[in-house]
Structures are given as structure tokens and as C-alpha cells.
Write a protein that binds this DNA or RNA. Sequence first.
DNA 1: TTTTGAGTTGTTCGA
DNA 2: GTCGAACAACTCAAA
Length: 457
Amino acid sequence: MNVSLVWFRDDLRVADHPALTAAAGDGQAVALYVLDEVSAGIRPLGGAAHWWLHHALVDLRQELDALGIPLLLRRGAGLDMVTAVATELGAGSIRWNRRYGGPERTVDAEVKLWAQEHGLHAESHQANLLHEPWKVTTGAGGPYRVFTPFWRTVSAHDFRAPLDAPDPGHGFAGELPHGDGLQDWGLLPHTPDWAQGLRESWTPTAAAGHERLEGFLAERVADYSEARDRPAINGTSGLSPYLRWGQLSPFQIWAALGPRRRELAGSNGPGVFATELGWREFCWHQLFHNPELATTNLRTQFNQFPWRDPANDPDAAAQLQAWKQGRTGIPLVDAGLRELWHSGAMHNRVRMVVASFLIKNLRLDWRLGEAWFWDTLVDADAASNPANWQWVAGSGADASPYFRIFNPVTQAKKFDAEGRYTTHWIPELLTGAYPEPIVDLQETRREALDAYASIKD
DNA sequence: TTTTGAGTTGTTCGA
DNA sequence: GTCGAACAACTCAAA
């Protein structure tokens, strides 16, 4: 009887999991999750991500238990852990769903090489992107750099139907190698326990993700194209963390969206929402072709941009701190950053506003904001987070023109006219104890335009 | 090879 | 209050 080791990564689900389905077909399956924050180039997870991961693993273990498949946990370098467990288990094959970051692909290639050298079958499967990044090129043969033609090409394809979870009865019943205890990983915060807001805001299980998807499709997707811009109402899908951790797959969402998912006419809700899946694909496309996306400007003229430096400029350092803590004196900006700190998420439109404020009004490097989001968001992934920060900065693919500078006061008037969102997160707006703005919006806007003009050519 | 049309999410100013 | 133009050219994708 062949025993297959299924290496789980950012795909913490049992349905539409091609590696798990194939392993069940092989004979007997054992699941392994490796918390790898030490392999070369791998980015350690942020605090909010650790919180979500802990609960997602508890949930995954329950779902696998129902199939009779054991889940082992190991912490360390992916190559060392996977090869050790495969050896101890006497596995005949190792299977996983593909990932697309540079350091991660290096690790996976090393595991595949080790398997070949040791006579094991090793196979990767497509699960987390609708379309493999290397399979789509422009007419000239290169990667797309503009979203619209990218999505026009990709979305014209037919994507496979999502898979059901495998039938029970394919779990490995022999003696298992040892695994770590999840509690011993210390992923949950204590002293202080800052996760109260996360617990109030999220149920980090696959079942909750499916419920959220069903509720969104039944009640809200029709109004999505308008409602998603208003932060005080429940107009967005709220599915991003479930996609981030793979508790939902893009194939499941694509299938559930139904036949109008390719239509954009008349601000069709399913079509507009499908383009958000398209942006996720486009971000991973960018990361695949630019592994340094989180650290390097895609447009190299931005290497000369005159950022203010918190390390040498006390005013800049204080303003960065005020931004993180939601005390800039700009209500929409502060509301967004307080929402982030409380809930581990931020409304999509407000993300653009706070990013524009950091980059353009405070003239602080987009990488500083990207790092804060990486640490505090439950949905930050290695592609979408840096790609979107570069988009706001103007340094990235399909970047917004440099003169497009959000005015957070104007944005609040347009999208939160009654101030419901801002007063929810900033109650002192009503008592008058709220601080003055830390910068003048008009003056810093002009300075940003000058700074952008200075790097032309 | 050259040409052409287009490019997520904005703001301000002046008529 | 409302509307259109200016903002600045450049890069990209495809014909």
C-alpha cells in the first residue's frame, strides 16, 4: 500500500485540494504542515497572520480527522522537515499544491530533487491560482504589465470545476512520526493578548469562509460595484483572508459566481467581483516574474525618489508612528488604521486612502507601509500586499499616474458622507478631543507633485 | 516595424 | 452645484 505525504502550505482546506485528492487515490495519506520561517529568503509571518494560522490549523486538523487523515506539524526548514517526515514514514510519494514566490519555489524544487534522488514520487498540483503565471504572455512573449489585457486574456479561459473533498477511508493507520504540538508554537498572543478584536471580527475556519461566500452571493453581490466603495456598510465580500490561507480556493469562488462572471456591462456585480479575483491573479503574476516585488521598485526611476527617512528625521519618525497608531488627525486615515489594529483588516477603499496619505502626504517609503500591513493584516499575502503598495506609490505595474493623490477629506465626503465609519472608529470625534492634522494636505500634496516631478526621465 | 489606442479606484480649477 | 479640462507624458499591448 502506497503512503503519500501531502504537504500543506497556503491551502488549508480539504475540498478542491488536488494534492490531497491525488494522495487519497494513491492509497493512504498523511498530511504535514511545516511552519517555515527560516529557509533562505522566506519572509516570516506577521503577528495577525500567526493568529489566523493557529486557528486555521486547528480547523484543518478537524476536517482531516473526519476523513481519517492525520495531520503532523513541524517547525523548521521546509526541505529538512519534509524529507525527514517522508523518510520516517516510509512514504512512496510527496504531493503538494504549487506556490509562486521565489524562495518558496526554490525550496519546492529542492524537495523534488531529493525525492528523485531517493526514489520517491514527487508531484505538484495547480490549486491556488486559476491560471499558471507562466502560461500567459503578451503577443511579444513577455509577462503582462497592464491589468486589463491580462484579465481579458486570462478570463477568456475555462477554469476547471472545483473538486470535492476525498472520501473517507484513505488515511494512514500505521505508526506516525512525531509532530509538534500546535500550542508549543506560541502563535497566539499573550501578555498582552491583543487578539480580542480579531476574535470579534472573524471566524477563521473553512466552513465560515464558505458561509461568508454563500451569504455574499445571496445577498450582496448584486450591489457590489457601488456598495464596495462605502466603508460604513457591509459591501465588500470579506473573503480575502480565506483566500489568503486557502480555506477557500479561487476555483470554488469562480464556480459559485455563475454565468455572469465575465460580464462587466452595467456594473454587473458578479463580473466586477470576478475582476477582484483577477487582480489577485495579476499580483501573483507580478510576483512570479519579479520575486523581489516586496523590496524593489518595479520602475527603477523610483530608486531616486526623495523619501523622507524616519531613521534620520525625527519628524518623519513621529509621523510614521502617528500613522500606525491612527493619530494623524485626519479622520478617514485614522479610522482605517484603527480598524486595522482592531480587526486585522481594513476596508478596500480606505486602504488606498491610508496608503496614499503615507506615501504622498507624509512622503514615506511605500515599503514602510507594506511592512506594517504585513504585520497587522490577517489577509496579507506575499503578492497582493507589495503589488498594491507599489501600485499606489506609482512604482509598480500598471501604476496610477503620479498626480492621482487622494484627498482623504474629499474621499470621506464622497464615500462616508454621514461620518458613520469615522465616528465608529474614532468616538472622540463626537466629544471634541480629536487632534489637529499632523500635516497640511494642500501643502504636502504640492510637495509630493514636486517630488514625483524630480524623478521623471 | 510602426502605429495606434488605451490605461482600477483622483483632485482641482474655472466656466 | 455641476461639468469638463488639465494634470504629463509614458508605457504597454496588439494590430
